[in-house]
Amino acid sequence: MNAAVRLTLYGAGLIVAFVVAFGLAGVVVPDSFVDDWVSRSSTPHGDEPAAPSEDTPHGGDPAAPSDEMPHEDQPATPSDDETHPAGH
């Protein structure tokens, strides 16, 4: 088979695959999800910080480091007594 014919068939196959994927996504993805996605992405990053919540104390960024310090009764690192029990 000629290389030009192969490339044409490959390109046509890609077009068909993307059209089918687009149509399937339009049927499967709920409209409420699309509306939420569009409303979140229409605001550029950094213009409007998200309100902190219990789960994300740094303005909605779960990847941000935590400011929380360990409680007095919970050491930050295990003590020698915890890592080397008596008698061992």
Rank of each mutant, 00 (worst) to 15 (best):
D73M: 02
D35E: 13
S32D: 15
T83V: 15
A12H: 00
D73T: 04
P85T: 07
I15L: 15
T56V: 06
D73V: 01
T43F: 00
D36K: 14
R40G: 04
D35K: 12
W37V: 04
H84Q: 11
H58C: 13
Q74I: 13
G59F: 03
F18M: 05
D61K: 08
M69R: 11
E54N: 12
P44V: 01
W37C: 05
V27D: 09
V34S: 13
P44E: 04
A17Q: 03
A51F: 10
A50Q: 14
P75A: 00
E48M: 06
G46C: 02
L14K: 02
D73S: 07
E54P: 04
I15A: 14
V29H: 04
S39G: 05
A21P: 03
L14C: 11
M69P: 01
P85C: 05
G59S: 01
E72R: 11
T77E: 15
G26D: 08
A17T: 07
F22E: 09
A17Y: 05
W37D: 10
W37E: 06
S41Q: 10
W37R: 10
S39V: 06
D81I: 07
P62C: 06
V19A: 15
P52K: 02
G60P: 08
D36V: 13
T43C: 00
V20F: 05
L14Y: 06
T56G: 03
S41T: 15
V38R: 15
I15T: 15
A21S: 12
P30S: 04
G26S: 07
F33Q: 12
P78Y: 08
S79R: 06
T83A: 09
